[in-house]
Write a protein that binds this DNA or RNA. Structure first.
Length: 215
DNA sequence: ATACCGATTGGCT
DNA sequence: GCCAATCGGTATC
């Protein structure tokens, strides 16, 4: 269990303007705050743009994926399986279409809100998995393309990422991405899932389906 | 206009 | 471990 530090500075846009495989592990242990809920990030995955067969950006820009092609510091929230909203942080240089999928976190504040949203499930399952994390934060399509690095001026800012307590190298674990299909879909070609070793909020691994690219 | 499919989850065997 | 749910996005005709 972690405690929220007294002064926890926001991470600047330059932090996110690096390749996704570099930013992703550096996000573990950081705090994501949104709408009164604070998560300590424990599991993330890197997606590397148009050359990454597992990425939504693989087939180029579409109305849905447009935020991925923009500059770092904006959200990319997508709907999947008719049920779930999954949250990404767009990173890298503008046009690189790279992003980090937030797969799991520990709820460190806003527990009443999350309890309402997640019902009777065990506390460790509140944000254990990308769909559950989206539900814990109550983020949907209206929250895609949101700037989480803009200056603190005027309108209230309710989405920020702060320094938190980055994990020690020995706590960092690396492995294949979960549920990624397409060429190289077994994940072995892209070991871009990063998590905090032994953290109970980390989701269970499920292999992706190897599938040939459609013509 | 229509068909296919998913960066998942929860329930059941 | 297996599988249905459920619907917007995308590709295809």
């Amino acid at each position: 269990m972690s405690s929220v530090t007294t002064v926890d500075a926001r991470l600047p846009r330059e932090f996110f303007a690096r390749p996704s495989v570099e930013v992703a592990p550096d996000l573990l242990g950081r705090y994501l705050s949104f709408g009164g809920v604070v998560l300590r990030l424990t599991e993330v995955e890197a997606y590397a743009g148009e050359l990454d067969p597992g990425s939504h950006a693989y087939r180029g820009v579409t109305p849905r994926t447009r935020p991925m092609f923009g500059p770092a510091g904006f959200t990319y929230v997508y709907f999947t399986y008719g049920h779930h909203w999954c949250v990404n942080l767009v990173v890298g240089q503008e046009g690189s279409a790279s992003a980090v999928l937030l797969r799991a976190g520990e709820v460190v504040a806003g527990t009443e809100l999350v309890r309402q949203r997640r019902g009777l499930v065990r506390e460790r399952d509140w944000a254990r998995g990308p769909g559950r994390l989206g539900q814990a934060l109550a983020m949907t399509k209206e929250h895609t393309g949101r700037d989480f690095c803009r200056p603190l001026l005027g309108e209230p800012i309710d989405l920020v990422v702060t320094e938190g307590e980055p994990v020690e190298p020995r706590q960092l674990r690396i492995g294949p991405r979960v549920g990624v299909s397409g060429p190289g879909g077994d994940g072995t070609a892209y070991p871009w899932r990063f998590w905090v070793d032994g953290d109970p909020s980390v989701s269970a691994y499920r292999p992706g389906v190897v599938r040939r690219r459609r013509a």
